[in-house]
């Protein structure tokens, strides 16, 4: 069964700019199972309500907006990471059902499940009389 599956989710280049903030490409894991795909994307610092998911013409775009966590009246003494927004796009193959996408967010990780589309039913084409 798994060999027949040709689900393809490839990262696509995006020319989008952000509003001045650094934009990271979230580290992503993708698991494919019989029922569909599961994507897990790391977006630390992003609250569930600040995630935007859209599908347009087979391209899934995920954006996460970070709310700066700088404590008030503190100066940065040591820095190993910079906060930023997240953005990544994936092209979905046609055997996936974009309407069935479900999203969950926990501990800064967004989990998307994308079900496989129901197999297109064979369609009979009627020949119209002249």
């Amino acid at each position: 069964m798994t060999n027949e599956i040709n689900a393809n989710v490839a990262p696509v280049e995006s020319g989008q700019t952000a509003r001045g903030a650094i934009v990271y490409r979230p580290l992503t894991d993708i698991v494919e199972a019989e029922g569909g795909l599961t994507l897990m994307m790391e977006m630390p610092g992003v609250a569930p309500e600040d995630v935007e998911i859209s599908v347009d013409r087979g391209v899934l775009v995920v954006r996460g907006r970070n709310r700066p966590a700088q404590p008030e009246n503190f100066a940065l003494a040591w820095s190993e990471y910079a906060e930023g927004d997240y953005e990544r796009a994936f092209s979905l193959s046609e055997d996936l059902d974009p309407d069935g996408i479900e999203a969950r967010m926990r501990a800064g990780v967004l989990t998307l499940t994308i079900p496989r589309a129901k197999a297109a039913l064979p369609r009979r084409i009627e020949v119209k009389p002249e």
């Binding site: 580290l27 992503t28 894991d29 993708i30 698991v31 494919e32 199972a33 897990m40 790391e42």
Partner: peptide, 16 residues
């Protein structure tokens, strides 16, 4: 690491 269902295939692994 998240547990994958039996027969599942990893398509992309970037997280540590």
């Amino acid at each position: 690491a998240p547990e994958a269902a039996e027969g599942a295939v990893w398509r992309l692994r970037e997280r540590g």
